Amino acid sequence: MPVLVAQRGGPCAACGAPVLKGERIEYTLGAGPRHLACADRSPELRRNQHAASCVLCGVQVPRGAGALSVTETCEGGAYTRRWAVSCVDFLACHERIVARLPGLQSR
């Protein structure tokens, strides 16, 4: 895991405590920043820093209330990152999806 110096502040992906600008951290794209003391802990949930629509059900997810995921692809030497926000309450998200699909409500 790469050890970097934090360029800006934000929450630790493992413990949620603030990461200070200039602090040495462990960082991976999928997990986010973690304190060096938290490096052995698995990241809990990477939260969205901006309001966005859920990629699954389409509901507007407020800042900090969703799960953030990233996929990175490389085509012809050009890397593309695609960020997606999804609801944390998976049951409510599933119910919204089922309500939109005709014929699945009775199952």
Score class of each variant (00 low, 15 high):
C74I: 13
Y79R: 14
T71A: 08
G64W: 01
T71Q: 12
P62V: 03
A67F: 06
Y79V: 13
L91A: 14
W83K: 03
Y79E: 08
A65E: 14
G64R: 01
G66T: 02
A84H: 08
I97N: 02
V88L: 14
T73H: 09
T71M: 06
R63M: 11
L68S: 05
R63N: 09
S86T: 14
V98G: 00
G66A: 06
E95G: 01
C93S: 04
R96N: 04
T80M: 08
F90M: 08
E75K: 09
T73Q: 11
L68I: 07
P62H: 05
Y79Q: 13
E72H: 08
C93E: 04
C74Y: 04
G77W: 06
G77R: 03
A84D: 10
T73F: 01
H94Y: 11
R63Q: 13
C87W: 01
V98L: 04
T80W: 02
C74R: 12
L91N: 03
R63E: 15
V88T: 08
T71K: 10
S86H: 07
E75H: 07
T80Y: 08
A65H: 06
T71Y: 00
V70T: 13
A84M: 08
T73N: 12
V88F: 05
V70H: 12
T73I: 13
C87D: 02
F90L: 12
D89A: 09
P62Y: 03
G76D: 05
I97L: 10
R82F: 04
V98D: 03
L91R: 09
S69N: 09
S86W: 00
P62Q: 01
V88A: 10
Y79M: 09
L91K: 06
T71W: 04
S69K: 08
F90S: 10
A65R: 07
A67S: 11
A84I: 00
G77S: 06
R82W: 02
G76M: 05
C93D: 00
T73E: 14
G76C: 06
L91W: 02
S86F: 02
W83R: 10
D89K: 03
C87Y: 03
Y79F: 15
F90I: 04
G64C: 05
V85L: 03
A92L: 07
T71P: 01
A92I: 00
V98Y: 01
R63T: 13
A65M: 10
V88W: 00
V70F: 10
C74D: 09
T71S: 15
S69T: 15
E95L: 12
E72M: 13
S86Q: 12
H94I: 02
V70P: 09
R81V: 04
V98P: 04
C93Q: 04
H94C: 04
V88N: 02
F90Q: 12
V98T: 11
R81N: 09
E95A: 11
I97V: 14
G66K: 03
C74G: 08
A92N: 13
Y79N: 08
C87Q: 00
I97M: 13
R82V: 15
S86L: 02
I97K: 00
T71F: 01
A84T: 09
V70R: 15
R82K: 15
A84Q: 14
S86I: 08
A78T: 10
G76S: 01
C74M: 11
E95Y: 03
S86E: 15
A84S: 09
L91V: 07
W83E: 10
A84Y: 04
S86K: 08
W83I: 15
R82S: 12
G77P: 05
R81L: 12
E72V: 15
R81S: 13
R96E: 02
A92G: 13
